[in-house]
C-alpha cells in the first residue's frame, strides 16, 4: 500500500491542482485511461464541496486528500473540517426549476454516479468522502 497525502488551503484555485495530482497518481496506479476523466471529475467535486464548506465554517483550515494504491484499487479520501449533516438527496424539478442554492449536494450526486464505490461520512467534525476505482494490480509504477 502506497499513499500520497495532499493538504491545501480552502481556495477554489487549488481544486484544479488537486484534480491534476489525483489524475496523475491514478494513472501511475494503473487506473484505465477510459476512467481517468471520471476520477478527475469525482475528486474535483469532492474537493469543491470541501472548499465551499470550509469557506463557510473554517476558512483557515486546510482540506486533506489521501490517494492510496490499495490491493488493486485506487482509493481517494477527501476530508474536510467543517461540521456536516447527511447530504440531502438531489431532486431535479421536471422543469429544471431547482435553484442553484438547492444544488449544493449535486456534487455528491455526481460523485455517486461516477465512482463505483463511494462512502460519504458526515459528522460534527467534518465530512469524509471515500471513493475508489479498479486499478491494475501492480500499477504502472510504484508511487
Amino acid at each position: 500500500m502506497a499513499t500520497v497525502e495532499l493538504t491545501f488551503s480552502a481556495l477554489p484555485a487549488h481544486v484544479r491542482t488537486a484534480r491534476l495530482v489525483a489524475t496523475a497518481i491514478a494513472r501511475r496506479t494503473g487506473v484505465a485511461e477510459a476512467i481517468l476523466d471520471e476520477v478527475r471529475l469525482a475528486v474535483g467535486e469532492a474537493c469543491s464541496r470541501a472548499v465551499e464548506a470550509h469557506r463557510l465554517h473554517c476558512p483557515g483550515e486546510p482540506v486533506r486528500i489521501e490517494l492510496r494504491d490499495d490491493a488493486g484499487r485506487f482509493e481517494v479520501t477527501v476530508s474536510d473540517a467543517a461540521p456536516s449533516e447527511e447530504p440531502k438527496p438531489y431532486v431535479l424539478d421536471a422543469d429544471g426549476g431547482s435553484e442553484p442554492d438547492d444544488m449544493a449536494d449535486l456534487g455528491v450526486a455526481v460523485i455517486a454516479g461516477l465512482a463505483d464505490d463511494v462512502e460519504v461520512l458526515p459528522g460534527p467534525k467534518g465530512m469524509q468522502i471515500r471513493m475508489s476505482w479498479p486499478a491494475s494490480a501492480n500499477g504502472l509504477a510504484a508511487i
Partner: peptide
C-alpha cells in the same frame, strides 16, 4: 475541457 457541478449550477441559474 472540464465541467463540474458548479458549472452546471451556473447554467441552471442562467436558464432560470
Amino acid at each position: 475541457d472540464f465541467l463540474d457541478s458548479t458549472g452546471l449550477g451556473v447554467l441552471v441559474g442562467g436558464l432560470k
